[in-house]
Write a protein that binds this DNA or RNA. Structure first.
Lengths: 144, 144
DNA sequence: AATTAAGTGGGGAGAAGTGGGTATATCCAT
DNA sequence: ATGGATATACCCACTTCTCCCCACTTAATT
């Protein structure tokens, strides 16, 4: 399971290191694609295969969702990790996510997300304010 | 069950000791994450896994839920206790909780909470002032 | 007073992140 | 087809951070 927040950078060759803690679970081959809120999703190959199958067989539902799924499937690229555990970000994905030099990598269960650092900070601040009351949210989960 | 209040410090390497009384129950691996009122939650791995499972079962369609999940999962970090029973606080969590040198560690049933000492004192004072209300609330619950 | 346990501080080996050089492959224009 | 430019893959080097170990201080216990 992927968790945590990691600060990395894209170098001149558009390479981004995956957190070392996540590398075993990622494996050598991963799939990177467009994600929600203008970030990038990184899946282990196995996870992606299952997901792609599900997405492909989905009944044609609401048009917004459908077009997003299309974007996600079409935007997928399979990339290898190099010896240092980095992946190469394709140009169109780099552009889609608005990646500058500093990026934030976030662990979210079955995937990693790659964010432009400043975008991530903005998003996080908003999220913190809106769910200031984490207690209430946790309550919904039946945790307490 | 975790109980009690402990005064500790963060050293230059961002390490904080867990109270020795709690170490057996914590185990070697714990998860630290964002908590309410800008404190940090420290869960034994087992407890966290149950919690994470619940988070994973939440629908990701709604953006509010999505951001809450991101906050909790991306905000979480799995850390090991060193031989002295200390954990390393990631930068972003240190910042989130506004931790200076002195911290208060509090036991709360299934978890520990890590507070900046001054924040804790403010919070405690507020709580004490409203303790009459709390008594009243407890009364309503039929505790006394 | 001596011994033990807990909290704190710091040195050093190794790992992780980052940057860059070079060779091979790919593409485009000549 | 050929030459040049661009891109990718692989390798190595440097810097920083993390983790492990040891040591000192204080407090509690015998």
């Amino acid at each position: 399971m992927f968790i945590g927040e990691y600060q990395h950078t894209i170098d001149l060759k558009k390479r981004v290191a995956m957190p070392s803690k996540c590398r075993v679970e990622l494996g050598k081959k991963v799939v990177i694609t467009r994600g929600m809120d203008k970030c990038l999703f990184v899946y282990p190959m196995k996870t992606w295969e299952k997901l792609a199958e599900k997405l492909g067989s989905l009944p044609v539902g609401e048009s917004g969702t459908r077009s997003f799924i299309r974007l996600m499937l079409a935007g997928a690229a399979d990339v290898d990790l190099d010896k240092q555990g980095r992946i190469l970000i394709p140009d169109y994905l780099k552009e889609y996510a608005g990646l500058k030099k500093d990026v934030t990598v976030a662990g979210l269960f079955d995937r990693l997300e790659v964010w432009d650092k400043s975008k991530w900070n903005v998003y996080k601040n908003k999220a913190e304010k809106s769910s200031d009351d984490i207690a209430e949210q946790l309550g919904k989960l039946g945790v307490y």
